[in-house]
């Protein structure tokens, strides 16, 4: 099925927030094509009546009580951040989504 184009790689990279270079587009297109071609084999065996496995542990309803636990020290956490201001994490301007 696959024949991954540079455009598709570019689309995937956008979805994944990767500013890939032009050169990488070509390399990845080739490699993804090979890899996806190989893994597409999963379609050969798995029939409709086979349930998918998302979790291998046969466990349900793992819940915790609604009891508070200590939070982290704010200054220590913000010290690890690339930028902070006023007790908050500082980020560059966000693309405008509302008009």
């Amino acid at each position: 099925m696959p024949a991954i184009s540079r455009e598709e790689v570019a689309h995937l990279a956008r979805l994944a927030r990767l500013a890939v270079t032009d050169e990488e587009l070509g390399v990845f297109a080739g490699q993804l094509d090979v890899i996806l071609g190989a893994v597409a084999r999963v379609g050969e065996v798995a029939a409709d009546d086979i349930p998918p496995t998302s979790h291998v542990v046969p466990v349900t309803n793992v819940l915790r009580p609604d009891e508070p636990r200590p939070s982290l020290d704010r200054d220590a956490v913000l010290a690890c951040a690339p930028a902070a201001e006023d007790g908050r994490f500082r980020v560059p301007r966000i693309l405008d989504e509302e008009a």
Binding site: D66, R69, S71, L72, V77, G87
Partner: peptide, 26 residues
């Protein structure tokens, strides 16, 4: 609830910013 959905941090409204955070909710 007293605590968050997936961790034990408190949910008090109007607390100082980033004082109700832990490895999970961060």
């Amino acid at each position: 609830t007293r605590t968050k959905m997936f961790c034990g941090c408190m949910t008090d409204f109007g607390s100082e910013p980033n004082t109700q955070i832990c490895p999970v909710c961060l």
